[in-house]
Design a binder for these strands. Structure first.
Lengths: 150, 150
DNA sequence: TTGCAGATTAGAATCGTTCTTAGTAAGAAA
DNA sequence: TTTCTTACTAAGAACGATTCTAATCTGCAA
């Protein structure tokens, strides 16, 4: 909350009542709300708040590095025929996706620590699949002179 | 391709020309196509193919475990105020999301191996963030008797 | 060969997100 | 404190992706 408001100022963004309300709603929320959910919750206090404002503000916050925008919904977007264990390299600029074969990642003590963490924050959760997404910039987007698009 | 077709039969799904075309298009494709992209590519060969069929088939394939449906698009869906390094636990049934503080995961040799893999499959790629999503079932969805919904 | 459960088609409907435009107000400067 | 500039907001239309619907068709088991 404090951190986020300070960040809003630091990013040169105006601190409007709408933004204050959105920050207040989001900052301590651990449920990973959607824009829709935030909008519904805010509507009682801010009956004139518009949808676009919620999206604009969330976009501004995540651009400023004050919150993260996640796409966690299963079963949407892209399809991958590779069923061998692997991770994904996603270029934030051009959207290209590459598979990376997974290497045995966790040493046994670290694996135990992770299991304990999971048991602590979500007792009884049964993990069925693990997906790792590494975002960044692909070579073509870092130095566009040498390469063509696509 | 072969694996996927065998899988279609094994799952008790009918092998229609449309499905054959979709499998043919997807099976060797490493570009993680969207349903739209597949549809456009297929349209020349199968001018009567409908969108719904592409979606239905991809859904059937991923339900049968023959391909994976990924949501890799950045900046959509859910928002997370937690900017400390952490992973996500997503329940496939109720959609609940929980943060898991990340433990130091990779031992140095494994980390090196991962770096080498990345350099091999995507030379020059600059990783800026890593996101780990563990999907499965939360305790409430495994034994619904003891808990209420939400 | 036939029967039928399951698949397909076309297009309407729905959902989440973004855009547009006119009006508003935060906050810097005087 | 007042003014001014510029960024922000409201409202709803537009958009793109996905799902639904209802009618028709077909793969394949018997």
């Amino acid at each position: 909350m404090r951190r986020m408001l300070d960040g809003v100022r630091a990013a040169g963004l105006k601190l409007t009542p709408q933004r204050l309300a959105i920050v207040r709603e989001l900052a301590e929320d651990e449920s990973h709300p959607t824009a829709q959910e935030l909008f519904e919750r805010l509507r009682s206090d801010q009956p004139t708040m518009s949808f676009a404002t919620v999206y604009n503000t969330l976009d501004a916050l995540s651009t400023a590095g004050l919150c993260a925008a996640l796409s966690l919904s299963p079963g949407s977007g892209r399809f991958d025929p590779n069923m061998a264990p692997h991770h994904h390299l996603v270029c934030d600029r051009c959207g290209a996706v590459r598979d990376v074969p997974s290497v045995p990642a966790l040493d046994p003590p670290a694996e135990d620590a992770m299991r304990r963490e999971i048991a602590r924050v979500a007792p009884g959760f049964e993990v069925r699949s693990v997906e790792k997404i590494m975002r960044g910039r692909c070579a073509a987007c870092i130095s566009p002179k040498k390469t063509r698009t696509t």
